Amino acid sequence: MSLHKKLLMRPRPPMPMGPMKSHGIGRKRDYTPMTWDHYFETIQDVAVGDDGDGDTFRVYCSGTAGPVLVLLHGGGHSALSWAVFTAAITSCLNCRVVAIDLRGHGDTHVENSEDLSAQTMAKDVGLVLKALYGSEAPPMVLVGHSMGGAIAVHAAAANEVPSLIAMVVIDIVEGTALDALHSMQTFLRNRPKCFRSLEHAIEWSVKSGQIRNLESAKVSMAGQVQRCENPTVAFGLSTSLAEGIMEEVDEEEETVAPPHTNELVQIRSQSEAGTNVNYSWRIDLSRTERFWEGWFRGLSSLFLSCPVPKMLLLAGVDRLDKDLTIGQMQGKFQMQVLPQCGHAVHEDAPEKVADAIATFMIRHRMTEAKGDFTPTLPGC
């Protein structure tokens, strides 16, 4: 994950005014969570220990034929962040999808969840794929976002995926990430520590700009937060921060009507009304700081040295560092910029990311289009 405030909290583009009701108040948005089975076909816990009692990795799958897209999420996220993208890519391309909850994230359970080094997580990817496919693995494409992009590069460099035919890295650049690591702790301290309900967490993620696609937030936030073990967790400053963000954005979105502060303060799911059940983050990212530099240091050279077709998807042209700029000019990888997206590019614009990756794979003759999908020329 590009662990810093600039990537996670980039300014949002102006939001168009939506349809208004006759009495001048904007339509209330629905933050009801969506479940994984709306987007993935199967779910399983993959054991990788020799005795069967070791580490188990939660895996979401779709598709039955074609190359396998191995999807690796960013830090703090989970495989559910790929849900809407999976539905989009499998509808236009003959392919399979394997989305993995990485070590310490989502519903994966390992004996040592504190070891989030690049080498350990890269090895995890190889072990999961070996457990799924054995020695006769089909052609595979590693697709990683942020921290997951770094793990994809390390896995490829360590030959953890022998059947690798291509790699796609989303919005992670070594220079930009390393320059901004010092501000990540500040960002983590300032975001809400807990939420009244899953709906409240979904609303915060959208209105704060962490995820700009409501549909994706409704399925992916369940992989980022969990019920608190202690139901009496006090909100204090963290709740005030969450509500403050919502109120500020509401003033921007509904300029013809006053923000409904009381409604925002009382956000709860109907099933939790009258209870003290709260939600908190599944992983404390502040405790992973010792691994951050190891994820990103030397990433550009490792990426450029991988001997397979490569694509770099970015949210802005300002992200390239010197090594990647030179490599892009030499044609060592394909780069495409998807503007008006936040750091979670594949969640903000899942159809556009699916279109870009499908076009990339068809261009390199890795698979065939499905239905009436027509590849489009890359933007840059």
Rank of each mutant, 00 (worst) to 15 (best):
A344R: 01
F373K: 05
M361A: 10
F333V: 07
K352D: 13
F303A: 03
D323R: 05
M361Q: 03
E351D: 14
A356T: 10
F373G: 03
S300Y: 08
R319A: 14
L320N: 06
V345M: 06
L313A: 10
L299C: 06
C341R: 01
D348Q: 09
T374Q: 08
I357N: 06
F333H: 04
I357G: 10
F303D: 02
L324A: 07
M329Y: 11
L299N: 05
P307L: 05
Q334R: 11
Q330K: 15
A356R: 05
K352G: 11
G331T: 03
G316D: 14
G316W: 06
K322E: 15
D348C: 13
G327D: 01
A349K: 15
P309E: 03
G327L: 01
K352C: 09
K352S: 14
K322T: 14
L299Y: 10
V308A: 01
Q334Y: 00
G371F: 00
P309L: 00
G371V: 02
Q334I: 02
L338P: 08
M335R: 15
A349S: 13
G316A: 14
T367L: 02
R365H: 15
C341H: 01
E347L: 09
T367P: 07
L312E: 00
M366H: 04
D323A: 15
S300R: 07
P339N: 08
A354M: 06
L299D: 07
G298F: 09
T367M: 00
D355C: 13
M329A: 15
L302E: 06
P307I: 06
E347V: 02
A315L: 04
T325G: 15
L312M: 02
D323T: 10
I362M: 13
G342F: 11
G298T: 02
P309T: 08
S300G: 12
T359Q: 02
A369G: 13
P307E: 07
P350E: 01
A349Q: 15
F296R: 02
Q340H: 12
P339F: 10
D348A: 12
D321G: 12
L302W: 05
E368K: 14
V317K: 14
V353E: 04
L320G: 07
V337T: 14
R365I: 11
